[in-house]
């Protein structure tokens, strides 16, 4: 198993990041639709260089199939048409629920870490 040679702490962070990544995608689409390339680049930059851009595409594909995002093709000022992502109603709902859970979870962990 390749994952097991990764030091434990960074592997834990990797798992955490991986788990919340889909909500980061939803959050980035909250206020505007985005071109796939820009979305992936912004996401990789926001979550640290450990997220390689290529590994975000399988996630986007799954979100499309889950129905939390939808895509449209739009003309590009230069070059071929581009695929844009936007949030669906289901996606906004999932994001809102996660946001509440996350804040509760984060606060609880912060309290414990500061006490310790």
């Amino acid at each position: 198993m390749r994952r097991m040679v990764v030091p434990r702490s960074s592997s834990l962070i990797a798992q955490l990041r991986r788990g919340v990544l889909e909500y980061c995608v939803l959050a980035m689409l909250k206020s505007e639709e985005r071109y796939a390339f820009d979305l992936v680049r912004a996401l990789a930059e926001a979550t640290g260089m450990e997220t390689s851009e290529g590994t975000i595409y399988p996630l986007l594909s799954r979100l499309r199939r889950d129905g939390t995002v939808e895509t449209t093709w739009q003309e590009s000022p230069s070059g071929p048409p581009r695929r844009y992502y936007r949030l669906t109603t289901k996606g906004s709902k999932a994001l809102k629920e996660f946001r509440e859970e996350w804040i509760r979870f984060r606060d609880a962990v912060d309290v414990l870490l500061e006490e310790g």
Binding site: Y35, A36, E53, G54, Y57, P80, R82, R83
Partner: peptide, 8 residues
């Protein structure tokens, strides 16, 4: 998708 990304 990856090919589009490379082009972009």
């Amino acid at each position: 998708e990856i090919k589009d990304h490379i082009d972009s």
